[in-house]
Computed example of a mutant assay.
Amino acid sequence: MLVPSHSGLLSSVDAKSGEIAWQYKISNSMLNPLLPLNGRRVIASTMDGKIVCLAY
């Protein structure tokens, strides 16, 4: 499960255990809704205009 934050941090949380699998700091700005892609990739953008494509 991917969880965006208001502080630019994207976290991957294990749905069963609740443990954080990984985190990626994109910006200091709030993350917009995520766009999942085919496979294990996601597009994330921030309110200050940064856009990233992450593979996990």
Rank of each mutant, 00 (worst) to 15 (best):
50 K>R: 13
40 R>N: 05
26 I>V: 13
6 H>A: 12
31 L>T: 05
26 I>C: 07
5 S>W: 04
38 N>W: 01
14 D>H: 10
26 I>D: 07
3 V>I: 03
29 S>G: 04
55 A>V: 00
43 I>D: 03
11 S>Y: 03
27 S>G: 09
3 V>E: 07
26 I>N: 06
19 E>N: 11
42 V>N: 09
42 V>A: 11
16 K>Y: 05
37 L>H: 06
13 V>P: 11
53 C>R: 14
21 A>E: 11
47 M>W: 15
45 S>N: 12
30 M>W: 00
50 K>E: 09
22 W>F: 08
16 K>P: 00
4 P>R: 05
18 G>I: 00
44 A>D: 06
23 Q>R: 08
12 S>V: 01
12 S>A: 13
28 N>D: 15
32 N>R: 14
3 V>K: 08
53 C>Y: 00
48 D>R: 06
38 N>G: 10
50 K>H: 06
20 I>N: 09
7 S>P: 00
26 I>W: 01
50 K>V: 12
52 V>Y: 06
24 Y>E: 13
36 P>N: 03
27 S>A: 12
42 V>Q: 13
34 L>M: 12
10 L>M: 02
25 K>N: 15
53 C>A: 15
44 A>V: 13
23 Q>M: 09
26 I>T: 09
37 L>E: 04
54 L>A: 02
29 S>D: 14
23 Q>V: 05
